[in-house]
């Protein structure tokens, strides 16, 4: 979460709204953000899902614990779910990878005839899938 707070500006610049969600209430979110020094710089919206409704919708609600798994989801402005990643309770995420996926999806949305290859990062070469590329991906990437 501290990692997210440090990189929040990049989400805003990309045109995305970053929302963190747990089954705690908004009042507990306030208390935590105010007291935890690591979250001093946090400016993202902290949403409360005490009933687990939204966590269930995304399949990250653990019914036996009443807690949400570490799920990350990217939704486009039309409301379509385009990326998801779920880690178990004890494994943290990589915000760089989240930003990479977000930017790749935004790029692909603007260039519908292109695809972002493995490890694609902003500014790098994309692929234009078509008959001429079959068996020639190596050449296309040069």
């Amino acid at each position: 979460m501290a990692d997210l707070a440090d990189r929040h500006e990049q989400f805003i610049e990309a045109g995305a709204e970053l929302i963190t969600v747990s089954t705690d209430t908004q009042f507990v979110h306030l208390a935590w953000q105010r007291d935890e020094k690591l979250l001093e710089k946090a400016k993202f919206t902290m949403a409360a899902d005490p009933t687990g409704t939204v966590s269930r919708l995304f399949g990250v609600y653990d019914e036996s614990k009443g807690l949400a798994l570490r799920g990350t989801f990217v939704i486009n402005p039309e409301g379509v779910l385009l990326a998801s990643e779920v880690n178990f309770f004890n494994i943290g995420r990589n915000v760089d990878e989240l930003l990479r996926k977000l930017k790749a999806n935004i790029y692909a949305a603007k260039h519908s005839d292109e695809a972002c290859p493995a490890r694609w990062a902003e500014g790098e070469k994309t692929l234009k899938p078509g008959a001429e590329m079959v068996g020639k991906v190596y050449e296309a990437l040069q």
């Binding site: 997210l4 045109g15 990217v74 486009n76």
Partner: peptide
């Protein structure tokens, strides 16, 4: 401050939405 967030409002604002679930505060 407190407020509400809805996917509908985010869509109307033309925003991409990133949801970041985690188990618990503190």
């Amino acid at each position: 401050g407190f407020g509400t967030v809805s996917l509908e409002a985010l869509k109307k604002a033309g925003k991409w939405t990133v949801l970041f679930f985690y188990p618990a505060d503190f």
